[in-house]
Design a protein around this nucleic acid. Sequence first.
DNA 1: GATGAATGAGGATTCATTCAT
DNA 2: CATGAATGAATCCTCATTCAT
Lengths: 199, 199, 199, 199
Amino acid sequence: MVEKPKKKEPTAAQRKLLARRLDMVAAAVACFIDNGYHQTGVRDIAARAGVSLGNLYNHFKSKEEILLEITRIEAAELSEFVKILSGKGKPDKVLQKFIREYLAYCAQPENGLLALEILSVALRNPIIFAEFEANRSELLQALSSHLQKIDSKNMKDTIESALVILDMIEGLALRCVMARKRPTRAQKLTLLEMIASAL
Amino acid sequence: MVEKPKKKEPTAAQRKLLARRLDMVAAAVACFIDNGYHQTGVRDIAARAGVSLGNLYNHFKSKEEILLEITRIEAAELSEFVKILSGKGKPDKVLQKFIREYLAYCAQPENGLLALEILSVALRNPIIFAEFEANRSELLQALSSHLQKIDSKNMKDTIESALVILDMIEGLALRCVMARKRPTRAQKLTLLEMIASAL
Amino acid sequence: MVEKPKKKEPTAAQRKLLARRLDMVAAAVACFIDNGYHQTGVRDIAARAGVSLGNLYNHFKSKEEILLEITRIEAAELSEFVKILSGKGKPDKVLQKFIREYLAYCAQPENGLLALEILSVALRNPIIFAEFEANRSELLQALSSHLQKIDSKNMKDTIESALVILDMIEGLALRCVMARKRPTRAQKLTLLEMIASAL
Amino acid sequence: MVEKPKKKEPTAAQRKLLARRLDMVAAAVACFIDNGYHQTGVRDIAARAGVSLGNLYNHFKSKEEILLEITRIEAAELSEFVKILSGKGKPDKVLQKFIREYLAYCAQPENGLLALEILSVALRNPIIFAEFEANRSELLQALSSHLQKIDSKNMKDTIESALVILDMIEGLALRCVMARKRPTRAQKLTLLEMIASAL
DNA sequence: GATGAATGAGGATTCATTCAT
DNA sequence: CATGAATGAATCCTCATTCAT
């Protein structure tokens, strides 16, 4: 059934399927950002994806599973920041780069708002919570390791410091998202300075 | 409606009314913490308050208004921390006291979880958002002013610094709430140190 | 709160409530007879009862509970036949009366079809099954006791005989219901004769 | 479609097809017994048969048609009992044999439960009803004729008597099926005695 | 003020069936 | 023949809110 010359043809079908699936996920993301997880109905998602309601359930077995998939995608995106932290260069420069880029990422509504939405659901949904936690712990480990490179003496608990630093970045990002603004140069400077001094 | 000769009798009645109202608010708070705003129905609130569904609507004109009232109550509680900041004593000691007490407050589920829930609703509800913002700006101003006392030279933007500090405290509190733990001594020390160094 | 002169007023309200509830049950019965339990939607019931869908759920917490109530009502009707069996008169005359009246009852679609529907659901629903069984065992006991009066010697197991006799009556009734006919005189005679001979 | 020169090759293919068809029917039977006709979805059947959903519709044009096929198969099985009744031997011995074997057959869940399920659907589905009736009338005729051999004088209506006897057998079988038990020796004896006396 | 019955739109999910591949 | 994605009406049930009592 699968002959070599026809190799691409079945891949095309699968591609189409995955594309549809992505359409649905993208639609869900858009809905969740606009209206929040609990305020968006599965009908909204289907409509936004240009797909029939029933078909949504051919691809995902529940609304929750869609959110789970989104959470996994977010996870994949976080690994980019892990890469930044494990990159070469002077540790403090690398840290600054990380802060700037992670802040930029979180301050985008489609990331920050979505993350907040996921967190909000995760608080009462163990399945989502587990995925959410898995995402963050990888980033946390990377940041923590990196902090030790910079200064291993003065830090009693680099994990805890890493957490606080993430709070600082994400806190600023959240405030920007809520204000529907991008972080100003002044905000970034203050953040960088405070983190630098804190270490 | 309130005539002088009848002043006392209606006051007793009014007290009862206010008590009822508080029962309802307390029930709503409990429900929102346990299940989140969107997951709790007005029936749940009425049941938890031991009150009939219809009566709930005699006291509040909508579910949203109940949340609004809760938000106002939270606001009142924040003013206690404003008092701490404007209290006498060495500025850095006062700041430490503020950090410890505000952290303790936010790390209690009935405060931290509730605040997160309110914030989550506020993101899409302008009315709640306005109330929520009003709450925080008072605290923010107080903290910002206090920071200037400590060191007015090195801070380009005390408002922004104050915001970051609040992020740090609330971030730690949120992590504690999510883990259903109280902040450890080590966590508090790290936080205090980092804030101190950051200034 | 409940003064004697006002005794009737609250009863009137309750009466209305019960009447509504009965309306709904009656509508459900009609639907179940016409279309079967699984084929009738809760909307059908509500519409037939002239009631809003939501209100149906103020009176019954699920579709299943409506069926449960119906099953209980059927139970109450069976007790009438228990009365017949424990009535005075020559035992064989009493038995004949029971057979005739129980047959007439089961042969009415609103009883026979409904009973079949209930049985059909009961097969896979333990809750309904329990109620269904409770209903029948009372009748079975009464018939069994009565059979012993007629002839205690020749019957090894009156319970088993009683069961077979009920099968005979209900079997005939079911056939009539399926044919949308009432039992003919000849059918009744054959049944009576066969039961009489069998004892 | 079936040309002579190609007779053998397509027969092998056809055999395979028929086997597939039988798989599907068997799967449907299992589903209907376990969960009832209305509670089983076509997806359940396809899954149980290890067949794709679409393929199910290549073999049967609807869910109803599957049930129809099952009903026809049940019919074929009934003809075995017709054979028993038209077999040689003393009429009353033959009758006893019929009763025992038909009871054994009906008391097996895969027959009794299925028959009840079919009947339940037949009540509201004329197509199924017709097939169901065809099945039974053959058996009924055979039993009725046999009864006349035993005693043609005392029976006014052997058809009616035959029906009652079938009710007795099937009633007992149904009770066994509902109790998930096989008929006991005592139950069989009572049944045989009662039928014998009734004639 | 207090009650809870009444409303009907909306919630997520499943259904039998079709159709392009 | 075989697949399973696609459809959208139908499923049971919950929602915030209103209103007659």
